[in-house]
Structure formats: C-alpha cells, structure tokens
C-alpha cells in the first residue's frame, strides 16, 4: 500500500476521529469539574461566562497560525493525520522536521514512491519525539503545584512576588534574542508593548471595563497587522 493511500484511508480517518473525541471528552470533564468548583468558591455564572468569552476572543487570533499550519502539513502528512497532530501536542515546525527526519532515515526522496510503512513510522516518530513533557508530568506536576501553594501560604508577601517569577524567567529567555537584530520581530514586539500600555491606560482612564476582556486579543491583532507594515518598510 502506498503512503498517500494509507494517509487518506477510511480507517485513518476513523482512528483520528476517535482520538479527537477522546481529547474533547477530557476537555469537557476538565471544564465541568473546574466550573463546578468555581461556583462553589463563589464565582457567579456571569463571571465565568466572561472568562469563556475572553478566552474565545484571545484564542481566535493565535489559532489562525494553527489553521495555517494545517495547510502546510496536509500535503506532507495527509488530511486526517494533520488534523490529529494539530489537535494535540506539537506544532507545525516540529511536525515537518519530524516527518522529514523519517523520510531522510528511510531514504525517501519522493513521497509518491513512499509506502504505508513510512506513513506509520512518521506517525510513531512524531508522537514519540514530543512525549517527554507528557511522560514526565504525572511524576512531577502535582508536587510542583503543591509547592507553589506552600510558598504562598508560608509568606503571603513573598507569595505575591513568587507567582510572577516563573513567567518572567520564561519571557527573558524568549524575548532577549529578539533584540539582537533590528527585524520585523523586534518592531512587532515593541508595537505590541506600546499598544498594550496604550489600551491599558485607556481602559483605566475611561473605565472601559467591558472592553478589558477583549483588550489582549485586540492588541495581538493590531500588533500582527503592524508586522505587515514593518515587513514592507524593512524590505
């Protein structure tokens, strides 16, 4: 059986649909448990719906990249496998690299001559290569989470600082390399900072509390739109 025959086979679609249904069920249970607990600790349904609306609006823009990735992946992995991969852990760059690694190791230069075995091998390699985080989480996540609570409980003042330390460390590592080159990335980042500051002060000054839940998505969208302008200017 050929590579694309296997990639577009009815059984591949069925297996992928089962996998996606599993993820959707998990998500539903996570949401239901947390929703119930949120109501118990005193949040109102209106507040929780505001969280839902804000999360939908701030997901839509980054999800465009995921959707775009689908079109990059589909010619390589076929429709059902791309659908599955982008619904679970991974990203387009990783998936393309992993698939190429398989084809390189198998000596495949033209996918039309590849077999079902290469397709199955690509499925395995893409899954195994990114599992380190998932595989380690059952052993370390709960103790890490408990420790966060303990720190806050021991010293309330230090707890106020420690929560932000983790995110700041991550941001330093990701942001600093952007400044080593005056590029579209640098200008887009600075635009995003300026827009966020501007919108935050507008929300505070004009008491635009209803706008607050959409402000992150608006900043993101505007900063991305500016990236087109910076690309044209730098070109």
């Amino acid at each position: 059986m050929g590579y694309f025959e296997a990639a577009g086979h009815r059984l591949t679609y069925i297996a992928v649909v089962i996998g996606i249904l599993y993820v959707l069920c998990l998500t539903w249970i996570f949401m239901r448990k947390s929703w119930k607990r949120a109501l118990q600790i005193g949040y109102t349904k209106e507040q929780l719906w505001a969280v839902v609306k804000a999360s939908v609006s701030s997901t839509l823009i980054p999800a465009i990249a995921v959707v775009t990735g689908f079109f990059a992946l589909a010619p390589l992995l076929g429709i059902p496998h791309s659908w599955w991969r982008l619904s679970i852990v991974g990203n387009t760059v990783y998936e393309i690299m992993a698939a190429n690694m398989v084809f390189h190791a198998s000596g495949v230069t033209d996918l039309s001559s590849a077999t079902a075995k290469e397709f199955v091998l690509a499925m395995y390699v893409i899954a195994v290569g990114i599992m380190a985080g998932m595989a380690s989480s059952p052993f370390i996540a709960e103790s890490l989470h408990k420790r966060t609570f303990e720190i806050k409980n021991r010293d309330q003042r230090w707890g106020m600082i420690s929560g932000g330390v983790y995110l700041s460390s991550v941001l330093i590592v990701f942001i600093l390399p952007i400044f080593f080159d005056l590029s579209v990335e640098t200008l887009t980042f600075l635009t995003s900072v300026a827009l966020t500051l501007l919108l935050k002060s507008a929300v505070r000054r004009y008491k635009l509390t209803r706008f607050q839940e959409f402000s992150a998505a608006v900043c993101l969208l505007l900063a991305m739109a500016f990236s087109v302008l910076w690309t044209r200017l730098l070109a």
């Binding site: 823009i61 980054p62 465009i64 990249a65 775009t68 941001l171 990701f174 942001i175 952007i178 579209v184 990335e185 640098t186 887009t188 980042f189 600075l190 635009t191 995003s192 900072v193 300026a194 827009l195 966020t196 992150a216 900043c219 993101l220 900063a223 991305m224 739109a225 990236s227 087109v228 690309t231």
Partner: peptide, 13 residues
C-alpha cells in the same frame, strides 16, 4: 507574514 509574527506580538502583551 502575520502568522510568522504571532510570538513577538504575544510576548509584548
């Protein structure tokens, strides 16, 4: 262009 610049746009906020 827009999808290539999602990360810097996010990191600013």
């Amino acid at each position: 262009i827009v999808s290539a610049n999602i990360l810097p746009a996010l990191f600013g906020s």
